[in-house]
Simulated scan of single mutants.
Amino acid sequence: MSISEETALREPSARLAADTPLDRLVEPLQRIAERLRDEPTRGVPPGADEPLLRTLVAATATVYAAASEATGGEIPLGEGVSTTDALVLACALLRAHHLNPFDLALWFTRGEAR
């Protein structure tokens, strides 16, 4: 990862002028998410079936994990993810890999000073 990419990950203001493949993906996804937050009864957009959502979550998780490893730690998500959304996704990810809260606790302390 380049220095400019690392800076963009740590400093949101550096993202304003970016035009990367990820930037081009994020904008339409943000519009979909905003629509779902504004009108949750509308449901997911047409074509957002289980295989597509699995691929989207898997790719996002891989990008986030790679960026976290490259910068030496977690990248704070801030206010962008609601508590409910975070827990729904965390539970789905844990279940998908047959993990439980104990397994999560082992990873949760990863990287903390002892």
Rank of each mutant, 00 (worst) to 15 (best):
G73C: 03
L87S: 09
A65S: 11
L104C: 03
L87W: 08
I32F: 08
E34M: 08
L29F: 04
T62S: 13
D103L: 04
E5D: 14
L89G: 09
S68I: 00
R15N: 04
R24T: 01
L25R: 12
Q30P: 00
T41D: 13
G80I: 02
A58L: 06
T83L: 03
V88G: 11
L93I: 09
G111M: 02
D103P: 00
A48Y: 04
L29M: 11
A86K: 10
L99C: 10
L94A: 10
A33D: 13
G73N: 07
L94E: 06
R42D: 09
A96K: 07
R10C: 04
P51R: 13
A33Y: 04
R114M: 13
G111I: 00
P45N: 10
P46A: 11
L94P: 00
T83K: 05
G47T: 01
R42I: 01
D19H: 03
A66K: 14
D38G: 13
L16W: 05
W107I: 09
P21T: 15
L52E: 05
L53I: 03
A61S: 15
D38W: 04
L22S: 13
F108H: 15
D85M: 06
A33S: 13
R114Y: 09
A61W: 03
P40S: 07
V26N: 12
E11D: 14
D103M: 01
E39A: 09
A17T: 07
V44F: 11
T20Q: 08
P51N: 14
L94W: 01
E11I: 00
L22M: 13
L52W: 05
L104S: 02
A70N: 06
E34S: 11
A14I: 00
A17L: 04
D85V: 08
A67P: 00
G47V: 00
R95A: 12
E112G: 01
G80T: 07
L22R: 09
V26I: 12
L77A: 12
L89H: 09
R24S: 03
S82M: 08
D38E: 11
P51A: 05
G111N: 06
H97E: 09
A58N: 15
R10A: 07
P21N: 12
E74R: 11
R10T: 07
T71W: 01
D103I: 00
L77W: 12
S13G: 06
T62V: 07
D19M: 01
R35N: 10
R114S: 11
A86Y: 05
S2R: 10
P76N: 09
E6L: 05
P76R: 12
R110F: 02
I75C: 03
H98I: 06
L106K: 13
G78W: 02
A58E: 13
G111L: 01
T41Q: 15
A90P: 00
D19T: 02
A8P: 00
Y64P: 01
S68Y: 00
P76Q: 10
L16K: 12
V63H: 10
V88S: 13
L22D: 14
L77G: 11
A105P: 00
I32L: 12
E27Q: 15
L56I: 08
D23W: 05
T109Y: 06
V88A: 13
T71V: 15
L106E: 15
P12C: 07
T60H: 08
T83V: 03
N100D: 14
A61Q: 10
R110M: 02
A105M: 05
L89T: 10
L16I: 04
